[in-house]
Simulated assay, not measured.
Amino acid sequence: MIKNIIGILRTAGCVFAEEEAQLLISEARTLDDLSKMVNTRITGMPLEHVLGWAEFCGMRIAVDPGVFVPRRRTEFLVQKAVSLSAPGAIVVDLCCGTGAVGVAIAKALGWIELYAVDIDPTAVSCAHRNVTTLGGLVYEGDLYQPLPAKLRGKVDILVANAPYVPTEAIQLLPQDARLHEPMAALDGGNDGLDIQRRVAEEASQWLAPGGHLIIETSKMQAPQTVEIFAQYGLIPQLTHNDELDATIVIGSKPAPFE
C-alpha cells in the first residue's frame, strides 16, 4: 500500500513522497481517511494542512487550513529570541499565525508572559489552540492595536514574522503557498517591507528599555530592514544562519544612559 501512495504522491510532484506517505499513514485512522488525505494532498494543499499540524522547534503545532504554515528557517528567530530573554519575560508575537514562534519561546524558557496578535480571524482561532495551553493570550487585530495598554514600555521581546515577499514576487512562490495560505501572511507590499516599517515605527513605544524587536527578513532585504530599524530609534544588528538559510534583524531599544 505504501508503495502505491508514494507513487501517487511522486506523480503529483511531491518531492519528499516517501516521508509524506509515512506521515499520512501514521495520522489516518481508517483507510477511508487515508484515501481522503492523499487525494487532498495531491490537489496541492500543504501537507501540514492535511495533517493538521507542523513540526516546529521539535514540537507539533496545530495548523488549520487557510493558516500560514510555520517554516523551519523561522526556528532561527526563536533561537535568537530565547538567547536574548529569560524566564518570566514579557513576549509579544505579532503576525503570529499559528502562534508557533511565541509557543516555541515559551517552551524553551519554561514560562513567559505571552501575547500573540494576528489580523486574520482564522489564524487567531488556530493560535488559540496553541497559545492558550501555555497560559498565553491571543488577540485579533492590526499589529499593536488590540494589545492591552498596560504593555506599553514593558515588552522585553517583540517578535514579528511579518510578511516580506514583494507583491510582484508572490507569483513566484510555490503553488501550495499561493493558493492555500492567506495573502496577508505573504504580501509585504511593493518592496516587501511595508509591514516591517509599521512594526518598527511603533516598537519603541512598547519595548522596555533594553528590550528587543526581532524580525525575519531575506538576505537581500536585510540592509533595508537595518535602515528601517535605525530610522525608528532602534540599535540594529543583522545576523544570518547558513544551515537554515535564515536572516533576522534585531533592533534593541537603548537603555537609559546608553
Rank of each mutant, 00 (worst) to 15 (best):
E168V: 02
A169K: 06
A169V: 02
I170P: 10
Q171A: 11
Q171K: 11
Q171C: 06
Q171E: 10
L172I: 00
L172Y: 02
L172G: 01
L173C: 14
L173E: 08
P174K: 08
P174N: 06
P174S: 03
Q175M: 14
Q175N: 15
Q175I: 13
D176W: 14
D176N: 15
R178I: 11
L179M: 14
L179V: 12
H180P: 09
H180R: 04
H180M: 09
H180F: 15
H180Q: 11
H180Y: 15
E181R: 04
E181I: 10
E181M: 12
P182R: 07
A184F: 12
A184Q: 15
A185D: 13
A185L: 13
A185S: 14
L186Q: 11
D187E: 12
D187I: 09
G188R: 05
G188V: 05
G188S: 06
N190L: 08
N190W: 10
D191I: 03
G192L: 06
L193Q: 00
L193R: 00
D194K: 08
D194H: 08
I195S: 04
I195A: 09
Q196I: 15
Q196A: 05
Q196T: 05
R197I: 07
R197P: 10
R197T: 08
A200D: 03
A200G: 06
E202A: 10
E202Y: 03
E202N: 14
E202T: 02
E202H: 15
E202W: 01
A203C: 07
A203N: 01
S204V: 08
S204G: 03
S204F: 00
Q205L: 15
Q205H: 07
W206K: 05
W206P: 05
W206Y: 02
L207D: 04
L207Y: 04
L207R: 03
A208Q: 07
A208T: 03
P209S: 11
G210M: 06
G210V: 09
H212T: 07
H212Y: 15
L213M: 00
L213I: 01
L213A: 00
L213P: 09
I214F: 06
I214Q: 05
I214S: 02
I214V: 01
I215Q: 11
I215V: 15
E216S: 10
E216L: 09
E216C: 01
T217C: 03
T217I: 01
T217D: 03
T217N: 01
S218R: 02
S218M: 08
S218V: 03
S218K: 11
K219I: 07
K219V: 12
K219Q: 05
M220T: 13
Q221E: 13
Q221F: 07
